[in-house]
C-alpha cells in the first residue's frame, strides 16, 4: 500500500508541468531540491470537477496551496469552498453519491484519490478542525491522546508530554492544566474548539484544514483562535474556510474566492481585498452580495 511520502521526498510527477498549474510560482526552482516555502505548492489541485449525485459542486478548480502559509477560501454559501476543503482529506468519501469526475489533487506530488492510497494515512497527515466543536465525550487528556493511541503510542510519559505540548500549542494549557481528567464537554465553546485544534496538532499533521472554525464562537473566543492560527502558521500549512471576510483578511496569506462552484480569483490576501482583479470578487469583498 502506497502512502503519502513525507515532506522530504517531494519529487514532482514525471509528466511535464501544465502551464496553468502554478499560478503562484514567480521564479523557477529546481524540482529535485526540497522546496522551501516559496517553491512548488504542497497541494496541487488540477481541473477538479466534483459531483454530489447529479449536481456539480465544483467546476474546473485549479489551485496550488503553499506550505506553511495560511490559505483562506471565501465565498457565499453553497459556493463549494467547504466541499473543496473536504476533498483534501477525502472526508467526502463518507457521503454517499459523491465522486470526482475529472481532475486530480496531489499532495507532495502523490494523487490522493488513487485506489492504492490509504485514506487513514492521508488523514493522519491532513488534520481537520470542524465548524462546530466536536470533542469526544471523554476527558480532555483522552481527547488529545485519541489519535496517538490509534497510532499505537502507549508510553504514558510520552503521551503526557504530547498532551502538554499540544495544549500549549493551542493556547489552552494554562486554562485546563489542572483538570485534564475532567470531561471535555464541560469546557466553554471556545475552549472546546481550541481543544479540537490541540487534538488535531497532537498527531503532527503537515496540513490542517479548518472548516469555519469560528462560526459558532463569540468575538473573544474568535480572537483567541485567530491568534492561534497566526502561531501555528510557522509549523503547519493551514487551509481555512471562512464566511467572515475580516477574518480572511486578518489571518491569511493567500485567499481564494469561489462562486457557484468556480474559482473566481486566487491571489495574495492583500491584493484580493485591496485590488481585486475580478469585478465579482470586488463586489463580494466590498459586501455587495453574499
Amino acid at each position: 500500500m502506497v502512502t503519502v511520502p513525507s515532506r522530504l521526498d517531494s519529487t514532482p510527477p514525471a509528466s511535464g508541468p501544465a502551464p496553468a498549474r502554478r499560478p503562484t510560482v514567480v521564479e523557477g526552482v529546481p524540482p529535485s531540491v526540497p522546496a522551501p516555502a516559496a517553491g512548488q505548492p504542497l497541494v496541487e489541485i488540477e481541473h477538479l470537477d466534483f459531483f454530489y449525485g447529479a449536481s456539480q459542486a465544483l467546476r474546473e478548480i485549479t489551485l496550488g496551496i503553499e506550505r506553511q502559509k495560511v490559505t483562506a477560501f471565501i465565498g457565499p454559501s453553497g459556493c463549494g469552498k467547504s466541499t473543496l476543503l473536504r476533498c483534501l482529506n477525502r472526508m467526502n468519501d463518507l457521503i454517499e453519491g459523491t465522486r470526482i469526475v475529472r481532475g486530480s489533487i496531489r499532495i507532495h506530488g502523490v494523487d490522493i484519490n488513487q485506489p492504492d492510497v490509504d485514506v487513514i494515512e492521508l488523514r493522519k497527515r491532513v488534520g481537520m478542525v470542524f465548524q462546530k466543536s466536536n470533542p469526544f465525550p471523554k476527558s480532555i487528556h483522552e481527547n488529545i491522546t485519541y489519535g496517538l493511541r490509534l497510532q499505537g503510542i502507549r508510553d504514558k510519559a510520552k503521551l503526557d508530554e504530547i498532551v502538554e505540548r499540544s495544549l500549549r500549542g493551542a493556547a489552552l494549557w494554562d486554562e485546563v492544566k489542572d483538570r485534564l481528567g475532567e470531561s471535555a464537554m464541560g469546557l466553554s465553546g471556545g475552549q472546546q474548539q481550541r481543544l479540537c485544534i490541540a487534538r488535531a496538532i497532537a498527531v503532527e499533521p503537515e496540513i490542517i484544514l479548518m472548516d469555519e472554525p469560528c462560526s459558532a464562537l463569540d468575538p473573544v473566543a474568535t480572537a483567541k483562535v485567530e491568534e492561534l492560527i497566526q502561531d501555528l502558521r510557522s509549523r503547519f500549512t493551514i487551509v481555512i474556510v471562512t464566511h467572515n471576510m475580516q477574518q480572511a483578511a486578518r489571518c491569511s496569506d493567500r485567499t481564494a474566492f469561489f462562486y457557484l462552484g468556480k474559482l473566481i480569483e486566487y491571489a495574495d490576501t492583500r491584493d484580493i481585498f485591496t485590488n481585486p482583479a475580478n469585478p465579482q470578487t470586488e463586489a463580494y469583498v466590498s459586501g455587495r452580495f453574499g
Partner: peptide, 11 residues
C-alpha cells in the same frame, strides 16, 4: 460530528 472527528484523526 464525533464520527467525522475520529475519522479525521486517522481512525
Amino acid at each position: 460530528a464525533l464520527k467525522e472527528a475520529s475519522l479525521a484523526l486517522g481512525a
